[in-house]
Design a protein around this nucleic acid. Structure first.
Ligand SMILES: [Zn+2]
Ligand SMILES: [Zn+2]
Ligand SMILES: [Zn+2]
Ligand SMILES: [Zn+2]
Lengths: 138, 138
DNA sequence: TATACACCCTGTAGTCGCTATAGGGTCAAG
DNA sequence: CTTGACCCTATAGCGACTACAGGGTGTATA
């Protein structure tokens, strides 16, 4: 029946996840504890592999571990409304959107600062000047 | 002469930096240790305030503490060429640019995933489906 | 003078999502 | 019988703070 057990290294290779990370997910309640072999090795079922793939895809999409935990719980109760799923996904997208905007205005400032530097000595450097609040002298 | 000493709270209010963060900067060599009062309180000079402002502005622009440290060192030796300043600033801008691109393609995927959800039950949820690698049955 | 209160001190531990050791045990092949 | 790949636990580190715990200081007021 259970001849198809997978080692932690198998899961690692199958999902591109470091072995330590898989153990970390287990310790943090994202991946259920598998059974063990005689030699105390973790022996995973195919369901573990599915679950780990789910976690990794969600992580690749930038969901936090808390969000992944919530998504996993939701996906386990398949008769529920998916409204809660939608809330999590939209909240995450909004945050990504906000980060993009923040970084874009940051880049605008950086571009200006860098543009203003004419590569003289530090005393005249516009980059440094833009960081320093006021010249110390006078 | 030195009647204008500033307390750590003064620096905190003047720069919008938490007191603990100021002590953290000191411990990590970004802000030099100030003299102390009789009661062992930190007593800052105006130069400390300038330096802290510099740090904060650089942090606001997203420079890492290592980069800030380097910028501070460069700004202290005002006769140097500003080429090194330029290198740091451009490297940072490139990284910001890269992050924007990464987040934009991430957002594209999230938009697609969210768009595909028609708010039925979890069993049919396109968001969950896009995370799960394959249905367990069959 | 007591005491309340705001402020300061040190030191340590927590956050997030891993990653990297240290110091061992297991298992199959040669 | 030893090598080597794999596995185990436990702990500490990353970056950049933040949040205590458990005190001390300094001043205004009842
Ligand atoms: Zn330049
Ligand atoms: Zn310059
Ligand atoms: Zn929906
Ligand atoms: Zn849905």
């Amino acid at each position: 029946m259970s001849s198809a057990h997978l080692s932690i290294g198998d899961l690692s290779r199958a999902t591109g996840t470091k072995v330590e990370t898989i153990r970390f997910y287990e310790k943090n309640g994202l991946l259920p504890e598998p059974s063990r072999t005689q030699g105390n090795y973790r022996a995973y079922e195919p369901a573990h592999l599915s679950r780990l793939s789910f976690i990794r895809r969600a992580r690749d999409l930038g969901f936090s571990l808390d969000q992944v935990r919530a998504l996993l719980t939701l996906s386990d109760d398949r008769s529920q409304s998916c409204a809660a799923v939608d809330v999590i996904a939209r909240a995450h997208r909004d945050e990504v959107e906000r980060k993009i905007k923040d970084l874009q205005s940051l880049k605008t400032v950086l571009d200006q600062v860098i543009e203003s530097c004419h590569c003289n000595i530090v005393a005249d450097c516009a980059i440094i000047e833009s960081l320093a609040p006021a010249p110390q002298g006078s």
